[in-house]
Simulated scan of single mutants.
Amino acid sequence: MQTALLYLLTVLIWGSTWFAIEFQLGEVAVEVSLVYRFGLAALLLWLWCLWRKLPMQMPAPMHLSVALMALLNFALNYFLLYQAQLHLTSAMAAIAFSTMLLMNIINTRLFFGQPIAKRIYAGALLGIAGIAVLFAPDLTELSLANTSLLGLLLVLSGTLSASFGNMLSVRNSRRGLAILPMNAWGMLYGSLALAALALLNGKTFTISSEPTYLWSLLYLSVFGSVIAFGSYFALLKRMGPEKASYVIVLFPLVAVVFSSLFEGFQWQVSTVVGFCLVLTGNALVLTPFYKLKLLWLRFKPGKRLPVVT
Rank of each mutant, 00 (worst) to 15 (best):
T17G: 11
F19M: 13
F19I: 09
F19A: 07
A20D: 08
I21F: 10
E22P: 09
F23M: 07
Q24L: 00
Q24P: 05
L25G: 07
L25Y: 09
G26T: 11
E27Y: 12
A29I: 11
V30F: 03
V30D: 12
E31P: 15
V32C: 12
S33C: 02
L34Q: 10
L34P: 01
V35G: 06
V35A: 06
Y36T: 04
Y36H: 03
R37V: 03
F38K: 13
F38S: 11
G39Q: 08
L40E: 07
L40S: 14
L43G: 04
L43K: 00
L44I: 05
L44S: 00
L44P: 00
L45E: 13
W46H: 14
W48Q: 11
W48G: 04
C49Q: 10
L50Y: 11
L50A: 15
L50K: 14
R52G: 07
K53I: 01
L54R: 14
L54K: 13
P55N: 09
P55M: 06
M58S: 02
P59V: 10
A60M: 09
A60D: 04
P61H: 01
M62I: 12
M62H: 14
M62Y: 11
H63S: 00
L64A: 08
S65I: 13
S65N: 13
S65K: 15
A67F: 05
A67R: 00
A67D: 01
L68T: 11
M69N: 04
A70L: 05
L71N: 04
N73K: 02
A75W: 05
N77Q: 15
N77H: 15
Y78S: 10
Y78N: 15
Y78V: 10
F79H: 15
Y82S: 11
A84I: 03
A84W: 02
A84R: 01
Q85D: 02
L86C: 11
L86P: 02
L86D: 12
H87W: 14
H87C: 14
L88P: 04
T89L: 08
M92A: 10
